[in-house]
Design a protein around this nucleic acid. Structure first.
Length: 565
RNA sequence: UGUCUGGUGGUGCAAUGGUAGCACAACUGAUUUUGGUUCAGUAAGUUCUAGGUUCGAGUCCUAGCCAGACAACCA
């Protein structure tokens, strides 16, 4: 919906990002026969995060915009790190974001036979050779960025010998690490990736899809571009760190004289107060700093889904951050804005008292219950009304009462009046404390003439509090989340491990929240706003006898902000 | 002392040789039975620097400065 809104805005000149400009130019020139075909190529070695969401929205979005196609391709050329668990999680995440790859789900491993044939062709044309150097020797002879490398002594092997050796590598005759197939390019190239890069390595490992079929596996640079080519990808969009790989990407395609997609690089997403690196997220999971990949504090897609962010809000976010080539750090507040923007229009309203304080209305008849009408969503009148029970004893939020209120506190205090939203105006008369001096109950009187919608008192009060009728209140556990890290850039300090900056208060569990009765029936996947507090969803841990809700994001709070909270 | 890429309000993204604009964040005010939403407004830029081309430069050229990426049998 965020999308349709912006598309209905009349624009005399729509500004394009640089990738769209390239595509429109290609379309205009008739390149690729007017075809636009992209792909999203994750490696199934971890869960997807918001950085991937940016890429997914970009690749699938480009295909939609230009009436093309976008493939889902698992880049599974490294059997030791990859697993089908990740494949399933990735598919679920892409679907959740609302994208459809149709029948075009591919695995790099689907192409292993063809890739092998391409490698043989490279050997035959003298473009590749088998090298017996050890990993250390290869690394050392590659040189440094500022100085040329040295050629391998095996570089001059005959085509026949290379062919024989490569086939025997495939057949498992040699030990892991004893030989590799290398491209014969230029050991003096200023681009390190062109100094006879490795194409195939021996790895006698079980692959999640091909099992024990292969003893050798292709490297990324070789496999990726050729898979793009085989799939007919026209625009191969990736992140900036692959920019230096592009000459190699082009070299393989040119050497093999096969269909040549165009690699285009854009800047990866960074967000402050979190990390977007699969490796670091994996550490947080493995070392149990979080409860799992889908911990609601994680910037993973599964995490934000569990947290209660909507797919639409992520689309909106992806649109807002734009696409460019310069390094960027997006404010977390922009993400939260996008979430609120979407949820405000769709979330069912309800009352939830997070930290309850008992309130007794002394002049309200004991045992009497009445039902009051409340809006399901004031932004959407068509969403109707519901009935809320009301009576003598209710719960209000502890923070909505103060004994010695400062001037800017509009809420309840002794001798002050406020409205109970959708109910009556009340006045506080008395505070009850326990032996420790803690406030345990406030006693008020109500104005029978002030009923919501039929107020005859003409009184103006400064605030309207949320509340829950005590006898019918539903108890719940509420998990309050805060940013995962306490500093903007946890990876910024080279001398410190990013985990030192983890926010110790990123999770706060409230065990005794009191909710409006209908919330007992809340279902997984429904979005709620607890009035004045924030957006909440049911957590998968929730049970009938122990309801659990997650805070997605708080409402904006001008008062708390003023207090420096 | 290498190669590639990039530098526009605090943060992102635009402006495609012709008045530097939009959003988030911040701050005012109005409205409000959510201190939400909505609405109106304010502040915030020597467009990295210095030269040059041009009637005119954020945009083109030259030089410099700064930042990021690149030396896995990872992707």
């Amino acid at each position: 919906m965020a999308k349709s809104e912006t598309s209905t805005v009349e624009k005399t000149h729509e500004s394009l990002n640089f990738i769209e400009e390239i595509i429109e130019k290609d379309l205009k020139n008739g390149k690729n026969g007017g075809r636009v075909h992209t792909r999203f190529p994750p490696e199934p070695n971890g869960y997807l995060h918001l950085g991937h969401a940016k890429s997914i929205c970009l690749n699938f979005g480009l295909a939609q915009k230009y009436k093309g196609l976008c493939n889902l391709r698992f880049d599974d050329t490294n059997p030791v790190t990859e697993d089908t668990e990740y494949v399933e999680a990735i598919e679920k995440d892409v679907k959740w974001l609302g994208f459809d790859w149709g029948t075009r789900k591919y695995f790099a491993s689907d192409f292993f036979d063809q890739l092998y044939q391409y490698a043989v062709a490279l050997v035959q044309s003298g473009h590749a050779y088998v090298c017996d150097l050890t990993p250390d020797q290869i690394s050392e002879m590659r040189g440094k960025p500022t100085e040329a490398g040295k050629e391998s002594p095996f570089r001059t092997r005959s085509v026949a010998e290379n062919l024989d050796l490569f086939e025997r590598m495939k057949n498992g005759e040699f030990a892991d690490g004893s030989k590799v197939l290398r491209a014969k390019i230029d050991m003096a190239s200023p681009n390190m990736h062109l100094r006879d890069p490795i194409i195939y390595r021996i790895r006698k490992a079980k692959h999640h899809r091909t099992g024990d079929k292969w003893n050798i596996y292709p490297m990324y640079d070789f496999a990726h571009g050729l898979c793009d080519s085989l799939e007919g990808i026209t625009h191969s969009v990736c992140t900036l760190e692959f920019e230096v790989h592009r000459p190699l990407y082009d070299w393989f395609l040119d050497s093999l004289q096969t269909f040549h997609p165009q690699q285009i690089e854009f800047a990866r997403l960074n967000i402050n107060y979190t990390v977007l690196s699969k490796r670091k997220l994996l550490q947080l999971v493995e070392e149990k700093y979080v409860k799992g990949w889908d911990d609601p504090r994680m910037p993973t897609i599964s995490g934000i889904r569990r947290r209660g962010y909507s797919p639409e809000s992520i689309h909106y976010f992806a649109e807002k951050i734009g696409i460019a080539k310069r390094d960027n750090i997006i404010d977390m507040s922009l993400l939260e804005f996008c979430v609120r923007e979407d949820l405000n229009k769709r979330a069912q309203r309800g009352m939830g008292v997070l930290e309850p304080l008992k309130l007794v209305i002394t002049n309200y008849p004991e045992g009497q219950v009445e039902y009051l009408e409340a809006d399901n969503n004031p932004e959407k009148p068509e969403s109707g009304k519901r009935q809320m029970p009301f009576g003598r004893e209710i719960f209000i939020e502890q923070e909505d009462f103060m004994e010695n209120p400062p001037a800017d506190f509009y809420r309840l205090a002794v001798d002050r009046e406020v409205r109970l939203k959708y109910a009556y105006i009340i006045k506080c008369n008395e505070v009850l404390k326990n032996e420790k001096g803690e406030i345990v109950e406030v006693r008020c009187t109500y104005e029978p003439e002030s009923k919501s919608g039929q107020d005859k008192t003409g009184k103006k009060v400064k605030s309207a509090l949320h509340w829950v009728y005590a006898p019918q209140a539903v108890s719940a556990e509420i998990r309050i989340y805060d940013r995962l890290f306490s500093v903007e850039d946890p990876e910024g300090d080279k001398n410190k491990d990013f985990k030192e900056f983890l926010n110790p208060n990123s999770l706060k569990v409230l065990q005794n929240a009191k909710l409006e009765p209908f919330l007992k029936e809340a279902k997984l996947g429904q979005y709620f706003q607890f009035e004045r507090k924030g957006y909440f969803v049911v957590d998968p841990d929730s049970r009938n006898e122990n309801l659990v809700f997650n805070l997605s994001v708080t409402l904006k709070d001008a008062y708390a902000k003023g207090k420096g909270k």
